[in-house]
Simulated assay, not measured.
Amino acid sequence: MPKHVIVPIDGSEQAGRALDYALEEYPDAAITLLHVFSGGPPEIHLEKRGSDYDDLRARRREMLDRLADERAHGGPIETEVVTGRPSREIVRYADEHDIDHVVMGSHGRDGASRVLLGSVAETVVRRTPVPVTVVR
């Protein structure tokens, strides 16, 4: 049974289902909700959104904290916000933090849309050193 599980959270319904699955299947494990703040360096976020980078990160952290507070769980629920390319950062986090399992949502894209857009879940499955459960 995994002792430490990460659940990447992007605010989607699929990520919410992945969190529910992780909480149900691993009731005693430590769970880390991981949000990857993507899109490049802070300067790009400032240009795109006209907002302060630290404020944007704080809002992502609040979203994760709210999710953690709303759900009951036997083990601890931690939150983490990192910046980078989602698939790369999820794999790196699993590698560097003694993670036993990744549970993540998938948008279920296939065919041309998956080729054009890439699939974070598919990349994580192929590259992470631990088991991955993909929830649709």
Rank of each mutant, 00 (worst) to 15 (best):
I77R: 07
V81W: 01
L67D: 04
T133W: 00
G118W: 00
V124M: 05
G40A: 05
E122Y: 01
R66L: 13
V115P: 02
V130H: 00
G16K: 10
T79C: 11
D10W: 04
P42D: 10
G75D: 08
A15M: 02
L46Q: 15
Y53S: 03
T83C: 11
K48E: 14
L23C: 10
L46T: 15
S113D: 04
E89Y: 00
H97T: 10
Q14P: 00
A112Y: 13
T133H: 08
P8Q: 03
D65N: 15
R61G: 00
E43C: 01
Y53W: 12
D20R: 12
S106K: 01
L19F: 12
V7L: 11
E96A: 11
D69N: 13
V132W: 03
V115Y: 07
L56Q: 13
R92I: 02
H101K: 14
S113G: 02
R17P: 02
R71L: 02
I77F: 00
G74H: 06
V103L: 09
H45E: 10
P2L: 07
L56P: 00
F37P: 03
V36T: 09
E13T: 13
S38P: 01
R85D: 14
S113T: 14
D20C: 05
P129G: 13
H73C: 09
G105H: 04
V82H: 09
V5P: 05
D52R: 04
D69M: 06
R49P: 00
S87Q: 12
R127S: 13
P42Q: 07
D28I: 00
P41K: 11
V36D: 08
A94F: 03
I99P: 03
S38Y: 10
R71K: 14
K3P: 03
L34F: 09
R88G: 11
L23K: 07
E13L: 09
A94Y: 01
I9D: 03
L116F: 12
R85I: 14
E89L: 14
E25C: 07
Q14T: 12
E43N: 06
R17G: 10
I6S: 10
G84A: 09
E70D: 15
F37N: 12
V134Q: 02
A22D: 11
R71G: 08
R136N: 14
R127V: 00
A68P: 06
A68S: 12
R126S: 10
V132K: 04
A22Q: 09
V102F: 03
Y26H: 14
H101Q: 15
Y21A: 09
R66K: 15
H35V: 03
R17E: 13
D52V: 11
S119L: 00
R88C: 01
Y93E: 09
D20P: 06
R57W: 01
M104R: 02
E13F: 01
Y21E: 10
G50R: 02
H97L: 04
G11I: 08
A58Q: 13
H107I: 00
G40D: 06
